[in-house]
Design a protein around this nucleic acid. Structure first.
Lengths: 129, 129, 129, 129
DNA sequence: GTGGTCTAGACCACG
DNA sequence: GTGGTCTAGACCACT
């Protein structure tokens, strides 16, 4: 899987990392049981600090996307184990401001829903839940 | 309009302020040409520093939500003037990671679309575009 | 002569006023001996504060563009009386940063000179010096 | 690169800073990829507050002169990336009032063009575009 | 009285 | 050690 980090972005690197790994899971590029590179390895590959990768992995673990195994390192969790009502509530709160902005910026309801559906499908394709 | 700031949140105050004012516009509580309180006034009302309010106003101005009128202070812009292709592109990029998370967390496509539609309508109600 | 003030501009109103009156002189719309509206009149016409117009007139007088006559009010000065080596030196200092920006923004020398010449001619047309 | 700030000037310090850094780029003293000092470092060197330096850097970033790299701090952008049609339009509007003044102050067209060309060349010397 | 500028100092997020 | 955030207080430009 390819990770593209934008060092000029105002989104912290560890957050970009987290987002891209989740996207990889959603697209089915990272499957249950699959190993992520070691913290050291990934940090070196991207050219970032160890701590940064570590923070991303820690957050992914807290959100149940991965499991940290002392021997095998970071492993993708099963889709069933990821599901979590609390997270969905948090997502709802995070998405509302974006929708308000979309509305103000002139997006119609059906336009917005079409876009969202398109993005959703770009992920769910080929992933067994 | 009522502004509720969560001082414990990890979202910066100026960002919460920005979000809530945009939500106010989307809900039609703040209409074109209407004045926002002065930075000093609002800062005092909320109990924060005026520079924090100023930062929120500056961002809102850069994103065309408000105008800084030299005579009247901060004024809500017209919905037409807010529209902007660049912002929509930026929104798309911000929303994608949230949808990937929603998918992983077990939300079905129609569930998601239903939620989004609901939020959208909670805004667009009673606002003339 | 028509004065268009942008109340949203980051350029102070008195400065916009000054610029536009100088432009009027340069375009020959305001000729030597001609009267400017009274401070009161102009302030009311544009919908701004008395002090703001006053400040613009004061600056124009300091820079020799107009004469303040107790009986006749503000009067356009003669082009000969406006000339002033000091102002030219000040202009040079003000224009240099703009040229540095033009260069960085990719303007070629001949492009820049062509533009400047065009602007210059849009003024000098029909004005006797 | 040497930065000379005039604390008596009516031009804000952050603006002088911005101008001088742009001039440094135009003169080729600051090249693509080169690092600017950290806000703290520069603030201390000049003897001003770090927030003032920060404001200058933020403006330079918004105008594409520099990039804020999360790992390396402020970095000079490539000349190609600086180019931007909007900025050129804005420059045109800023330069027009100065030309009107130059005309009124008695500068002839060829005098003006000669001066501008001289300033332009003082910048473009030794800079690869 | 308004926003803009500058200073100053604190704490935190980031790398 | 870096920039980002927030607070606080001062002065000034502008209207």
């Amino acid at each position: 899987m390819f990770l593209a980090i934008d060092f000029q972005s105002d989104i912290p690197i560890y957050m970009q990392l987290k987002h891209q790994i989740i996207a990889g899971i959603a697209r089915g590029e990272l499957k249950e049981g699959e190993n992520l590179p070691s913290v050291r390895q990934l940090a070196q590959d991207i050219g970032i600090n160890l701590h940064t990768v570590n923070k991303a992995y820690t957050l992914l673990k807290e959100d149940k996307y991965i499991l940290m195994d002392r021997r095998k390192g970071a492993v993708i969790n099963s889709m069933e184990s990821m599901a979590d009502a609390d997270s969905v509530t948090r997502l709802r709160e995070e998405i509302a401001p974006l929708i308000a902005q979309a509305f103000c910026k002139g997006m119609k309801e059906d336009e917005l829903l079409l876009e969202i559906a398109e993005i959703y499908r770009s992920f769910s394709q080929g992933v067994q839940r």
